[in-house]
């Protein structure tokens, strides 16, 4: 992502689609994500445990790493001044090695709060084929104007 990539609030409108992100998941993706997030639980690295104890088809992507994927997807679109306020996600099923995961987002709402901070609400579906794996509602601050920077906001001027 170049530093010059930057979405400004005035360029965004409800109903706008974000570019898809597609990624082929391997066992290394799952294990790297689990260990990067210090999640040592065996269902994220031990195939036998996942199959015979958890009753699933393979090791699967862990929750904190899914959150990191959603962050990457959103800030790829906003650019580096995009600042996450909150994300809410609901996991319906799991991502396994061999899956191609696709992140697909749509702008639900655009607003400016009392402090002048620009906010974009985005609905993101993480899908594998036709299967929706996880749904995510995100609220992310973007510059209200070219010279604005949401990262400058502190205390009462940051209302996530």
């Amino acid at each position: 992502m170049p530093e010059s990539t930057q979405v400004v609030l005035t360029e965004v409108e409800a109903g706008q689609d974000l570019p898809d992100l597609s990624y082929d998941v391997s066992a290394s993706t799952i294990v790297l994500g689990a260990l990067a997030s210090r999640d040592w639980r065996p269902m994220h690295h031990d195939h036998d445990f996942a199959v015979n104890r958890n009753g699933v088809q393979d090791i699967f992507l862990n929750t904190p790493n899914q959150a990191a994927w959603f962050e990457r997807y959103l800030t790829d679109w906003t650019g580096p001044r995009g600042r996450l306020g909150r994300i809410k996600f609901r996991m319906k099923t799991s991502v396994f090695p061999g899956d191609t995961m696709v992140f697909r987002g749509r702008v639900e709402d655009v607003s400016t709060d009392d402090t002048g901070c620009g906010w974009v609400n985005v609905q993101v579906d993480l899908k594998v084929g036709d299967r929706v794996v996880t749904t995510c509602e995100a609220r992310i601050a973007v510059p209200a104007a070219t010279e604005d920077n949401p990262w400058d906001r502190r205390g009462e001027s940051w209302r996530p």
Binding site: M1, L35, A36, N65, A68
Partner: peptide
């Protein structure tokens, strides 16, 4: 850990990789 996590999701956001940014 920040770089390892960025790497795990291929996050190239320069605020994590470029000190000047």
């Amino acid at each position: 850990y920040v770089w390892t996590t960025c790497s795990s999701v291929e996050n190239g956001n320069p605020i994590f990789w470029d000190e000047a940014v």
